[in-house]
């Protein structure tokens, strides 16, 4: 039996009819065509599926779509809604070379947002802890850590962006 739900994704409200077994990850990718959110391990270990629900990062592969009735969801597509002006986190990831294959990037960026929205000046250790649930097989993490620190500076001092 399908369930009717209303959810807001990146500011747009959707009224959907979903089977109870479908995950938020599947509905975002397959029904809403928001394929920025990836599916990796399906067990909460890799972080590639990370999205924000009501302002908190969660694994979309471990979340059922039916749980999302009335909730606010942010995916990587919502970081730069215009599609032109990038979010400071995205700018910093590009500038610092924190992206290689890119598969972990959407999840990394949302985990970064989960940290920076309450702590724009994190220590190295706090950054590493914030992305402890996001695996990257390319970068060796150091450039991602640099990028998140830089993103925090840009969020705190927007005028210094695009140096």
């Amino acid at each position: 039996m399908k369930h009717d739900i209303s959810l807001t994704v990146n500011g747009d409200t959707y009224h959907l009819s979903v089977e109870p077994w479908r995950t938020l990850n599947e509905v975002l990718r397959e029904d809403l065509n928001l394929t920025g959110t990836k599916l990796g391990c399906g067990s909460g270990d890799c972080g590639a599926c990370t999205v924000m629900v009501d302002g908190k990062s969660v694994s979309s592969c471990l979340t059922l779509a039916v749980e999302m009735d009335g909730r606010q969801i942010l995916t990587v597509e919502g970081l730069a809604p215009s599609g032109e002006t990038l979010h400071p986190i995205q700018e910093a990831f590009i500038e610092k070379g924190a992206i290689q294959c890119g598969f972990c990037t959407p999840g990394m960026e949302l985990s970064a947002l989960n940290l920076l929205k309450t702590n724009p000046s994190p220590s190295d250790a706090q950054i590493r802890s914030a992305i402890s649930g996001n695996l990257c097989r390319c970068t060796g993490y150091n450039k991602i850590v640099d990028a998140i620190a830089e993103a925090g500076r840009r969020i705190k001092h927007p005028s210094k962006a695009r140096r």
Partner: peptide, 26 residues
């Protein structure tokens, strides 16, 4: 019973569990 889902959903995704009825506690 489904609460945070961080264990139950893993079992479902890995096809170890096929519940007939999920009662969401959230």
């Amino acid at each position: 019973l489904l609460a945070g889902g961080t264990d139950l959903m893993v079992a479902i995704n890995l096809r170890r569990l096929r519940p007939e009825k999920l009662i969401y506690l959230g």
